[in-house]
Design a binder for these strands. Structure first.
Lengths: 145, 145
DNA sequence: TTGGGTCACTTGCAAAATGATAGTGACTGT
DNA sequence: ACAGTCACTATCATTTTGCAAGTGACCCAA
C-alpha cells in the first residue's frame, strides 16, 4: 500500500468536522452570534423543521459549542449561548462567508463591518507565526508515528 | 415579526455552505491537497463508499472546486485537481484543523509545517484591513436593502 | 490466450438522517 | 374561559447515506 492509507484518526480537520460538519450546525452558530438565541428565533430565521433544530441544538450542546440557559423560570424560557469553543468557531464562519462571497456572491449580501473603522471586514487565514496568508508560502505535512 | 426573519438568501456563509457544506466534500479537498488525486486513493484513504465518493466528486466538480482530468487514455486514468476556487478553500480547512486540534485534539495529530522555517503553522483568521484576529475587535453587521 | 489484478466506477437494496405536519404542555394576557 | 406564544415532541414520508456486489476497460504474466 501507499505512504499512508487512512489517517482520519490523526487529522485535525476531521476532528473539527466530527463536531460541526454539517450545514445546519454552522448556520445555527451564525444565527446565535447575530443575537438569535432563542428556539423560535432560530426556527423562523433558518426555516428549519423543529425536530431537526432540536437535534442540532442537542448535538451542538453535547459537542460543547453552545450551552442551554434557562433565563426565565416562569414562563419557562431558554436561550442558547456560545461557549468558548463556539465563539472560537466564528472566525471560520467568517472565512467561509468570504469564500462564499467570492465564488457564489450573486446579488446583494450582508456583511460585517469593523465597528470602529466602519470598513467591511475582509477575513483571511494567515499563519500567526509569519503573518503570511495560508497558501502564499510552501508547506509540508508532518505525520505522527 | 422581528428585525429580519430569514436572510439566508443574503448570507455569504450560507452561500459558501451551499457548495461544500458537508463532511465528505471537505475531506476530499483535504486529501486532494495532500496529493491523493485519484479515485482509488481517495476511496481507500477516506474509507468512503464508492457510490458516495462518485457523487461527492461530481458535486464538487459541478460546484467548481475540482476538475476531472484524464491524464492517460489507455489505460483510462483520471485525476481530480483543485481549481482556483478549490485551492482558495484550503485555508478554511486549515482553520478548521486548528480548531479541531484545540478542542478535539486528543492523541497525536498530523500538522502542517512551514517549509522554510520548519515551524508548525498556526492558522488564524484575521481582518486583512487591520491585521487583527477576528473576534478581537467589535463588529457590526450590515444588511442589504 | 487465458487468467488474474488494478482502476474507476455503477447498480441494487438496507439503514439512517432529514423534512413536513400535527400535536402537546406550560404558561400569559384579556 | 379562551386565544396566543414559546419550546418543544411524535409521526410519518422523503431523501441521503452506506454496504456489498458487479461491470467494463485495460495491463501483465504464464
Amino acid at each position: 500500500m501507499g505512504t499512508q492509507e487512512n489517517n482520519s484518526g490523526t487529522c485535525p480537520v476531521d476532528r473539527g468536522l466530527m463536531r460541526v460538519g454539517d450545514r445546519w450546525s454552522m448556520l445555527v452558530l451564525r444565527d446565535i452570534e447575530r443575537g438569535l438565541t432563542r428556539y423560535e428565533q432560530l426556527r423562523t430565521s433558518l426555516g428549519i423543521a423543529p425536530n431537526i433544530l432540536s437535534r442540532r441544538l442537542s448535538a451542538l450542546a453535547e459537542a460543547g459549542l453552545i450551552a442551554k440557559n434557562r433565563y426565565s423560570a416562569r414562563p419557562p424560557r431558554d436561550e442558547y449561548l456560545l461557549t468558548d469553543a463556539g465563539r472560537d468557531f466564528l472566525p471560520i464562519l467568517m472565512a467561509i462567508g468570504a469564500w462564499g462571497r467570492k465564488y457564489n456572491g450573486g446579488g446583494a449580501l450582508s456583511r460585517h463591518l469593523d465597528a470602529e473603522t466602519g470598513e467591511a471586514v475582509r477575513p483571511v487565514v494567515v499563519d500567526a507565526n509569519t503573518g503570511a496568508p495560508i497558501g502564499s508560502r510552501p508547506l509540508r505535512m508532518e505525520y505522527p508515528d
